[in-house]
Simulated scan of single mutants.
Amino acid sequence: MKVLHFTPPVPQEDSVIVDEDILSHFYNYFHRHKQLQITLIIKGTGTLMVGNYSQAFQPNDVYILGANQPHIFKSDPKHFVNPQVGNAHAIHVFFDLDRIPRSFLDLPEMEAISRFLKTIQNGLQLPAKHANQVGRIIKKLKNKPSLERLLSVISLFQYFSKEVKEWKSLHTGFASYPVSDSEGIRMNEIFQYTLDHYAENITLSRIADIANITPHAFCKYFKKHTRKTYNTFLNEIRINEACKRIINSSYDGISTIAYSTGFNSATNFNRVFRKTTGMSPSDYIRAYKSKDH
């Protein structure tokens, strides 16, 4: 496996492509493509990885990913245990900005859109309060003729640039590091193994074996490519899973969440949870319960 160069199933004459996935699980490979991507999650849960950033995804989420940005929507294990078509449903909009003349983006009427497009390279998540309205627009795109589809996407960018103020950045704060195809193979193996085995005791020796390098070399290699330690990355994946379980109410208590997501004690879980989310597990549970009322 590698950071695959993915080509959307598109007619060559179109600048905007709409691809609807109705599957048992989402595309299971770390990949990138030259098109900007807007994704609406309709059904399915899992972990989104964008470069060296990770977080949980769920229905009604809307994401914008930059051109050539490595990413994967990794479906939760339940999608593979009972692989029924329709368990994962998303609409992806691919827009090749290279096909838009620079002079068009320099028009005065395009000023706000042009500024907005410069902010998306590291990825953005749409605030939840805009998701229903934007989701309705995205769902209608697949049935529009080519020109209307293009104009609708430009209008959508205008809405993004004028009306949306609280975007969530999918960025760690560090500059992106170029990943060659050979390095991508190794990084994808590391990511995939971590996502599949986060609840286990993943030792440094074990993950170094997956990368086919020595433990010492692995520590330097992972830090170079992600700007974080592997333990930090592993804990982020575990906390993402813990948050999903809280949101889905699939837990018996904080200790149960701690041990089932790979932590060796509730105390350590509480410490890492607070460091990662900015609040304690109890506060996080209360915050989500209050949203339901």
Rank of each mutant, 00 (worst) to 15 (best):
D76C: 07
D76G: 08
P77M: 02
P77R: 02
P77K: 03
H79W: 07
H79C: 04
H79D: 05
F80H: 05
F80L: 00
V81A: 11
P83N: 03
Q84A: 12
Q84C: 08
V85P: 00
G86F: 02
N87S: 13
A88I: 00
H89G: 00
A90T: 07
I91D: 05
H92L: 08
V93C: 13
F94P: 00
D96H: 05
L97G: 03
L97S: 01
L97F: 05
D98W: 03
D98H: 01
I100K: 02
I100H: 02
P101F: 06
R102K: 09
R102M: 07
S103F: 10
D106M: 11
E109H: 08
M110L: 09
M110I: 04
E111Q: 11
I113W: 08
I113C: 09
I113K: 06
S114P: 02
S114G: 07
S114L: 06
R115Q: 15
R115P: 07
T119M: 13
T119K: 13
I120M: 06
Q121Y: 13
Q121M: 12
N122W: 06
G123L: 10
G123P: 11
Q125H: 06
Q125A: 10
L126F: 08
L126E: 08
L126T: 13
P127Y: 09
H130V: 05
H130L: 04
A131F: 05
N132D: 13
G135M: 11
G135K: 08
R136E: 15
I137W: 14
I138K: 12
I138Q: 06
I138L: 12
K139I: 07
K139H: 03
K140S: 15
K142E: 15
K142T: 13
K142W: 00
K144G: 04
P145R: 06
S146Y: 00
S146W: 00
L147A: 09
L150Q: 04
S152R: 05
V153K: 04
V153N: 10
V153C: 08
I154K: 01
I154R: 01
S155A: 15
S155V: 09
S155M: 10
L156T: 01
F157H: 05
F157R: 08
Q158K: 14
Y159C: 05
Y159M: 12
Y159L: 10
F160G: 04
E163K: 14
E163Q: 14
E163N: 10
E163S: 11
V164C: 05
V164T: 09
V164Q: 03
K165V: 04
K165Q: 04
E166Y: 01
E166P: 02
W167R: 05
W167Q: 02
S169L: 03
L170G: 01
L170Y: 00
L170Q: 04
H171D: 15
T172D: 01
T172C: 03
G173E: 00
G173W: 01
F174E: 02
A175W: 04
A175Q: 13
S176D: 13
P178G: 11
P178D: 07
V179W: 15
S180L: 10
E183A: 09
E183M: 12
E183K: 10
G184A: 04
G184N: 07
I185T: 15
I185R: 14
I185V: 15
R186M: 14
R186Y: 08
M187T: 11
N188V: 12
E189L: 14
E189S: 14
I190M: 10
I190G: 09
F191S: 11
F191V: 14
